Computed example of a mutant assay.
Amino acid sequence: MSITSALVLFSVIWFMTFLIVLPIRVRTQGDLGDIVPGTHASAPEHHHLKAKAWITTGVSVVLWAIIGGIILSGWISVDDIDLLNLRPPQE
């Protein structure tokens, strides 16, 4: 795996993890009862974005190491996930 592939893999894992972590523990204006005129009641008031970014980074590093190890070890290859049998078998 090249450095570019490793960075792309980490970026994909980071953003997927961030989208999962983002809605956790969000306090909305409706929850607090302080709705600013012209906004939705579901608009976030306390989002804790910095903490969520750090949590996402930590989880992503662990997942990236596991997935990168699996890819580099050859335990799972492209031939294993070729569901349409487009590649000829290698001997």
Rank of each mutant, 00 (worst) to 15 (best):
M1K: 12
M1P: 04
M1I: 02
M1T: 12
M1D: 01
S2E: 12
S2H: 12
S2C: 08
S5V: 12
S5C: 15
V8A: 15
L9A: 11
F10I: 00
F10V: 02
S11M: 07
I13F: 01
I13G: 00
I13C: 00
I13N: 11
I13A: 00
F15W: 08
F15A: 05
F15H: 08
F15C: 12
F15T: 06
M16I: 12
M16N: 02
M16K: 09
T17Y: 06
L19P: 01
L19W: 10
I20Q: 11
I20M: 08
V21S: 05
I24P: 05
V26M: 02
V26I: 14
R27Y: 05
R27G: 03
T28A: 05
Q29G: 06
Q29S: 02
G30F: 11
D31N: 09
D31W: 07
L32K: 14
L32G: 02
L32I: 12
G33K: 02
I35L: 07
I35A: 07
V36H: 13
V36Q: 04
P37L: 09
G38T: 12
G38Q: 08
S42P: 01
A43D: 04
A43K: 00
P44W: 13
P44Y: 04
H46E: 11
H47P: 05
H47I: 15
H48M: 01
H48S: 08
H48C: 03
H48N: 06
H48V: 06
H48Y: 10
L49G: 12
A51Y: 15
A51H: 06
K52C: 00
K52T: 08
K52P: 05
A53K: 02
A53V: 14
A53F: 11
A53T: 11
W54Y: 10
T56Q: 01
T56G: 03
T57N: 10
T57K: 08
G58C: 05
V59D: 03
V59G: 06
S60I: 05
V62S: 08
V62R: 04
V62A: 01
V62N: 08
L63V: 09
L63R: 06
W64G: 06
W64R: 01
A65L: 15
I67A: 10
I67H: 01
G69N: 09
I70T: 03
I70K: 07
I71F: 05
L72V: 15
L72D: 15
S73I: 01
G74H: 10
G74P: 02
W75N: 12
W75Y: 15
I76W: 14
I76S: 11
S77G: 12
D79P: 01
D79Q: 07
D80H: 14
I81R: 01
I81A: 07
D82C: 02
L83D: 04
L83N: 04
L84N: 04
N85H: 13
N85C: 04
N85I: 07
L86C: 07
L86G: 06
P89G: 10
Q90T: 10
Q90V: 13
E91M: 10
E91C: 00
E91T: 07
